[in-house]
Amino acid sequence: MGGHHGEPYKVPHPSIYKVENVPQLLEVKESLARQGLSDPWLRNEAWRYEKKAFGTHASRLKTFMFRGLGVGFCAFLVTIGAEYALGIGKGQGGHGHGDGHGDGKHH
């Protein structure tokens, strides 16, 4: 079958992700501390803010919105070309052409 031909994916060690490296999470941690609370799982969210690996929120949104746009546009052009080459859809826009109506003859 397909298989994986490259080097296997290496899972990073969890200790590389620190709340202190992420300003947004640090703010949450400090806010919780002011209320006498803590979140032991907060570090598990730090990977989401790794810009090298996952990009920014805006870049992920841009990728989501425009992924496949080039392929879709090419498919659109091929469809238009095929319709033009095969004569599909010609003469469907004009009402009354070739159906006997509007030529002054009454049946």
Results as ranks from 00 to 15, higher is better:
39 D>R: 02
41 W>F: 10
20 E>M: 05
50 E>G: 02
19 V>P: 00
46 A>R: 03
61 L>I: 13
99 D>M: 05
50 E>Y: 06
23 P>W: 02
70 G>D: 10
61 L>Y: 07
42 L>C: 05
21 N>Y: 11
35 Q>N: 10
47 W>G: 01
81 G>P: 01
49 Y>C: 05
28 V>M: 14
61 L>N: 07
18 K>T: 00
99 D>R: 06
37 L>F: 11
72 G>K: 05
25 L>E: 02
101 H>I: 14
19 V>W: 00
60 R>V: 04
15 S>C: 04
54 F>V: 04
20 E>W: 04
18 K>F: 03
11 V>W: 05
91 G>C: 08
79 T>Y: 12
7 E>N: 11
93 G>I: 10
31 S>F: 09
106 H>S: 15
48 R>I: 14
31 S>H: 08
47 W>Q: 06
70 G>H: 03
67 R>D: 05
63 T>R: 12
28 V>T: 15
98 G>D: 07
95 H>P: 01
65 M>C: 11
63 T>G: 06
43 R>H: 12
12 P>R: 14
50 E>S: 10
81 G>K: 00
70 G>E: 06
25 L>N: 00
76 F>A: 09
78 V>N: 02
13 H>P: 14
33 A>L: 09
77 L>R: 00
18 K>Q: 10
93 G>L: 12
76 F>N: 08
34 R>S: 13
69 L>I: 15
88 I>E: 04
49 Y>K: 03
32 L>N: 14
67 R>H: 08
45 E>K: 13
61 L>Q: 11
80 I>V: 14
59 S>I: 03
6 G>K: 01
27 E>G: 08
10 K>A: 11
70 G>C: 05
51 K>F: 13
71 V>H: 05
30 E>I: 04
102 G>K: 01
60 R>E: 00
43 R>Q: 11
16 I>V: 13
67 R>W: 03
15 S>R: 08
87 G>L: 03
91 G>L: 05
84 Y>A: 12
45 E>I: 06
87 G>W: 03
40 P>W: 01
75 A>N: 14
38 S>V: 10
10 K>E: 15
31 S>A: 15
49 Y>E: 01
30 E>P: 01
106 H>K: 15
15 S>P: 00
56 T>W: 04
86 L>C: 10
39 D>Q: 00
17 Y>L: 09
47 W>K: 11
62 K>G: 07
79 T>C: 10
63 T>I: 08
24 Q>D: 09
11 V>G: 02
97 H>V: 15
37 L>H: 08
99 D>N: 15
11 V>M: 12
88 I>T: 07
36 G>L: 08
34 R>Q: 15
7 E>W: 07
104 G>T: 05
24 Q>W: 02
83 E>D: 14
32 L>R: 14
